[in-house]
Simulated scan of single mutants.
Amino acid sequence: MTGAMALSPSVAVRRADERFATRLSWLDSRHSFSFSRHYDPGNTHHGLLLVNNDDVVLPGTGFETHPHQDMEIVTWVLRGSLVHQDSTGHAGVIYPGLAQRMSAGTGILHSEKNDAWRVSGAEPHADPVRFVQMWVLPDEPDVDPGYEQLEISAELLLGGLVPVASGMDRHDGEAAIRIRNRYATLHAARLPPGDEVTLPDAPFLHLYVPVGAVMLEGTGELAVGDAARITAAGGQRVVATEPAEILVWEMHATFGDG
């Protein structure tokens, strides 16, 4: 990781239809950065954010057990429910308003499926689940694997940007979940039409609009699936033009070119 020095202010808008796409019989996944077989050497990350995948998974299907290592993985469900199970013994159903973080550390196996009825005993449903999964590297490799989840719907109802996951000291006791990167925080906001928030002042910001539409001060409209990669230019107002939900990564470091 490197600090943010001698940066030129910029705002780069990435539209929804510019993202890589993986489409399978059970999955519709849109990748903001290089991922899996999709590789662009000029699009590997922004700041500390390596992955921003917007996934729709059909009922009764999902990601079978697979490994991760040395990664902080935050999952944010937008619609439906997602069942998480991992090799450390953690299991749970993630739904909108429930923040979840998995630290892969020295190594972890996990699965993610749209089959909550198998956990609850309820009748099977026909509803897809949609979620955004985001990855950042930890400050240190080879930490113990870990898992955390917490309901933050009440905080979202209060308005403004709500810390969802943070490794910054200033969010001790405030962020819903902790990540092992002291330079990064994920914020979320649910905005009725006309409501606004002000973006943090940070060297690197990633604003993603998974729901609705907003106006970004000085840039223009961002619709569903659009993102703004902001460098050395924080503090803009974001105003909802229709009911919207936004995800904002505030980052005070980056990686070297790669």
Score class of each variant (00 low, 15 high):
236 Q>L: 10
185 T>N: 10
161 L>S: 07
234 G>M: 09
187 H>M: 11
173 G>M: 08
151 E>F: 03
188 A>N: 08
237 R>M: 07
153 S>C: 07
179 I>H: 04
203 P>K: 07
157 L>Y: 00
230 I>T: 12
215 M>W: 15
238 V>S: 02
171 H>Q: 09
141 P>L: 09
223 A>H: 04
154 A>M: 02
234 G>V: 10
186 L>A: 08
149 Q>H: 13
210 P>N: 04
148 E>H: 12
180 R>K: 13
232 A>E: 12
157 L>P: 00
241 T>V: 13
162 V>M: 04
216 L>C: 01
178 R>C: 08
251 M>I: 07
242 E>G: 00
178 R>I: 08
179 I>V: 15
186 L>T: 01
142 D>H: 15
187 H>W: 15
235 G>D: 08
160 G>M: 02
178 R>E: 13
210 P>T: 02
230 I>G: 01
228 A>R: 08
158 L>N: 11
185 T>E: 03
213 A>E: 15
162 V>D: 01
251 M>T: 14
218 G>C: 10
212 G>M: 03
197 V>S: 05
143 V>N: 11
202 A>S: 08
230 I>H: 03
169 D>M: 10
201 D>V: 10
227 A>K: 06
160 G>A: 02
230 I>V: 14
155 E>N: 10
228 A>F: 11
192 P>R: 14
192 P>T: 09
143 V>M: 10
247 L>E: 03
197 V>L: 05
209 V>N: 01
156 L>C: 05
189 A>P: 03
223 A>M: 06
